[in-house]
Structure formats: structure tokens, C-alpha cells
């Protein structure tokens, strides 16, 4: 479903991502972890079509994002780490804006919007301006918007930042359900517990290079820390 081949991104002389190769099949939750400045957000921005790679190719559902960006983007639900939105729209109006952009059928919009707003506990706030929302509410609204057009893949940067424990639990369950229904999820996170609990496979990136990937138990196997906490595994692999 998601295929990254020899993806490199350079900012001048600095290489943020180097020769990254990844293949994520349909229905898999892939966790992308690494220290600050490792290249996670850069990779996510390239996958979301926000930034071009310096070299290499990215395919979403078989579509090369460089050759057919609009077609590839229709297959994605993109959730950035910082929830900047149009503050002068209400939550419901924002969902309508997204629905129009992704050409969601007008007849289905009301039903879908109500469902998403209810799922993310935003129904009571749906007619309030986004400027009055808290950070967590904005994050939930972006998630609701990303799912509105039934994407084939979700690309999400730090999904749990700003969410309360109830919302964190809800998002974890939701991601698992979506993956069971065939949606591919690529998420970067610093919360190793979340990665371990939710992800089928985890990739560890450091200084722009993918240093390890596999299931949590496979990653443990790559170190001598078989029964250790996943934090220790991460530290051992990245230092």
C-alpha cells in the first residue's frame, strides 16, 4: 500500500533522510520512531505530498506521489503534529470544507460528519468557532476530518500529543479497528508505549537512516534486552 524506494531529502548540505526504503502492506499499522531531529516529520511530510524528496520515489496505493500528487493525496488522510486550522470556521464548517475538497458526496456528508463528530466527542462544540477549541479538541477535529473521505491510508505525525487519556484510548482502539478493515496506518510517535501497543511493525530512524525495523519482539531480538522495557531497547538501538 505504501512504498518508499531510496528516498533521500537534503536541506542544502544537510541530509535529513538518507536512502530510506520501506514497504507497508494494506491493513498494517506501522510505527515510526526516532530521537528528535531524526527525520520522522520530514519523511511524513514527503509521504503527505507536502514536500518533495530530493531523490527516490514514494507510492501510495500504487500511485507515484510525484507524478500524480492529487490522485495519491486522495488516498491519504493526513494528520500533522501541530493542529493549525482555519480559526474563524466552526468545527462542522471545517468538516464541510474538507468534504468539498475531497469531493465527498453532499448527500452523505451530514451523516458522516455527525458520525465523526460523535466519535471524537465534538458534537457539542461543532457549531463553535475553532479558535475557541483547546489543543486536544483541534487534534481530534483534524483526525475526524482525515477520516471523512474514507482514505486507504492514514499518515499521522504524533497522534497522541495533546489528547486526554480517554481520547488516547479511543484513538488506539480506532486505529486497530481501521487496520482490521484494511486501512494502512503510518504513524510517527515519541510515545514508545503507544508504538508497542498499537503497531504491527516499528521502524527506528536515527540521523536520517533507518537503523532497524520489525515487530516489537523482533526489535528486542536485535538487542540482548529480550525482557527489557521497550524504552531500553530504543535507547540501545539509537545510541
Amino acid at each position: 500500500m505504501i512504498l518508499l524506494e531510496n528516498v533521500t531529502k537534503k536541506y542544502g548540505d544537510y541530509t535529513a533522510v538518507s536512502n530510506l526504503n520501506l514497504e507497508i502492506p494494506r491493513g498494517e499499522i506501522f510505527g515510526f520512531i526516532g530521537p528528535n531531529g531524526a527525520g520522522k516529520t520530514t519523511t511524513i511530510k514527503m509521504m503527505g505530498g507536502i514536500m518533495d524528496p530530493t531523490s527516490g520515489s514514494i507510492r501510495i496505493g500504487g500511485v507515484n506521489i510525484k507524478d500524480e500528487p492529487e490522485k495519491a493525496k486522495r488516498k491519504i488522510g493526513f494528520i500533522p503534529d501541530r493542529p493549525y486550522l482555519y480559526e474563524k470556521l466552526t468545527g462542522r464548517e471545517f468538516l464541510k470544507f474538507i468534504a468539498n475538497l475531497y469531493e465527498v458526496d453532499d448527500k452523505l456528508f451530514t451523516e458522516k460528519a455527525e458520525k465523526q463528530l460523535a466519535m471524537f466527542s465534538l458534537l457539542d462544540w461543532s457549531d463553535e468557532l475553532i479558535e475557541s477549541y483547546s489543543h486536544g479538541m483541534k487534534q481530534r477535529l483534524i483526525m475526524a476530518a482525515a477520516l471523512l473521505h474514507d482514505p486507504e491510508a492514514i499518515i499521522v505525525d504524533e497522534p497522541m500529543v495533546g489528547l486526554d487519556p480517554v481520547a488516547v484510548k479511543m484513538v488506539k482502539v480506532l486505529f486497530k479497528q481501521l487496520a482490521e478493515n484494511g486501512m494502512t496506518i503510518f504513524m510517527s510517535t515519541h510515545t514508545l508505549k503507544v508504538a508497542e501497543d498499537v503497531c504491527d511493525r516499528i521502524g527506528i530512524i536515527n540521523k536520517g537512516i533507518l537503523i532497524a525495523s520489525g515487530t516489537p519482539s523482533e526489535l528486542r531480538g536485535k538487542t540482548d534486552l529480550v525482557d527489557a522495557d521497550f524504552e531500553d531497547v530504543f535507547i540501545k538501538l539509537t545510541t
Partner: peptide, 28 residues
């Protein structure tokens, strides 16, 4: 709180004829 008005959800009737992306940005 800086809220002055309560906003009722409504769509502009004349924008219904526009294609999706144009409608999204015109309304916004």
C-alpha cells in the same frame, strides 16, 4: 472568552453549482 456571536451552520446556496474544491475555498 472572545466569543461574540453563535454561528449556525449554513451553506451558501449559489455555491452549489461550483466544483468541490472551488466551493470549499469560496465558502471558507
Amino acid at each position: 472568552s472572545s466569543r461574540v456571536f453563535k454561528y449556525k451552520y449554513s451553506d451558501f446556496p449559489f455555491t452549489g453549482l461550483l466544483p468541490g474544491a472551488s466551493r470549499a475555498f469560496v465558502v471558507k
